[in-house]
């Protein structure tokens, strides 16, 4: 564990909690892409199946359980409890154009052709593009609530910090995982446009198109 990974995990946890609380307190999921949240729930489910097969640490297990729990709770709030506030017309990204290619790629390019490893690879590739429906929705509506931009900032920051974590681990431990690194770079690059808008226009309230 290093500082980049710790802060990255906490930033990821913050993003997940911010979104869940925002929906719960405002009793509305307006402006939130339910499709992205479903993709994140799939990412966590396919990546954390090793919860059933191996114990790494209390921290690792707790975080995985929290991530999975919050992801499904968020999907539940969007599609069940507050479904009247779900803006389905603007959440129109064709996720099958993400899931199918990602699935194919996971079968073709992976570290080991085993069930758990292919699922893990699928979750890594899927996570790198899972935010696209949300960014697409914001570009269609042309606006985002401030709390939603904080959610996106924390979410984008987490994987950016993981990039530093991988540099750290390569330098100090000689460890690197090319699949995770390449997907992490793609994931972070997708946020760059948003990061620029978030930093340059934060606080004044803004309408922006990605």
């Amino acid at each position: 564990m290093n500082i980049f990974r710790l802060i990255g995990d906490l930033s990821h946890l913050a993003a997940i909690i911010i979104l869940l609380l925002k929906i719960w307190k405002s009793r509305s999921c307006a402006g939130i892409s339910g499709k992205s949240q479903i993709l994140f729930a799939i990412v966590f489910t396919t990546r954390y199946l090793d919860l059933l097969t191996s114990f790494i640490s209390l921290y690792n297990t707790c975080m995985k359980v929290i991530y999975i729990g919050c992801a499904y709770a968020t999907v539940y709030l969007i599609y069940m409890k507050f479904r009247a506030t779900y803006d389905g017309n603007h959440d129109s990204f064709r996720v099958e154009f993400l899931v199918v290619p990602v699935g194919g790629l996971a079968v073709l390019i992976n570290h080991d052709f085993s069930f758990l490893e292919i699922l893990w690879t699928f979750s890594i590739y899927l996570e790198s593009v899972a935010i696209l429906p949300q960014l697409f929705m914001i570009s269609k509506t042309g606006e985002a609530e401030t709390i939603t931009t904080h959610y996106l900032f924390c979410l984008g920051l987490y994987r950016a910090l993981y990039l530093f974590n991988w540099i750290w681990r390569f330098y100090f431990e000689g460890f690197f995982d090319m699949i995770a690194i390449v997907a992490g770079v793609v994931q972070t690059v997708l946020y760059c446009d948003f990061f620029y808008l978030y930093v340059t226009k934060d606080g004044k309230g803004y309408r922006f198109s990605i």
Binding site: D9, S54, H111, D112, N165, A180
Partner: peptide, 10 residues
Amino acid sequence: DGDAKQKDEL
């Protein structure tokens, strides 16, 4: 290669 080590990252 990659899968030898435990996947200790989230």
